[in-house]
Amino acid sequence: MANLAEKLSPLHELAMPRSGSDKIILSERLCDSLVQVQAWPDSVGEVEKLINGTRGKRSVMPTGPGRWLIDDPAEGLEDKLRKKIGAELGAVTGLTHARVVVSISGEKATWVLASGIALDFDLSAFPTGTTQVGHHHEIGLTIHRTGENSFDLYVFTSLVRSFWQWIEKASAEPGFSVV
């Protein structure tokens, strides 16, 4: 996949770096590879092994029965997995352009998220390294906890600007920076 055009974030200048409070740190990124894998009911274990066998630096996020969202820091994961899994075991869908990752961290991160998302962000209910599927009003979200106070939110591309406007507004009370 050489010489591809540069991708443009739908957030444009909205997510330009800004210094402010470190109680909330916001950032955005586009994925190099974001892939959904859906295993057929009789091949869940086999597909899981295939996914975990090539884990590396990628985040593998379970989002449903026999379903995973995989964020890989290298391009081309969709084709690789499709060859590996094949139609007889499951389906591989590329979502690299379908989501924008909004990252939030800082001591008030769970407080800000809880102000708009009806999920229990307590570590006992949502441990680090796990994923939950939720929504902020009509915006569906896949939320991956990367640390005690840090989260990656996979937001639908067409709605990410509305979501960013909300999260900035919600972060204004404790104060925030954009990096």
Binding site: S158, R161, S162, W166
Partner: peptide, 17 residues
């Protein structure tokens, strides 16, 4: 709540701007 002023999130196409 925070929905004051607008009722729904707007969906924008990649070419919106």
């Amino acid at each position: 709540g925070e929905k004051y002023g607008h009722l729904a999130a707007e969906r924008l196409t990649p070419m919106h701007d």
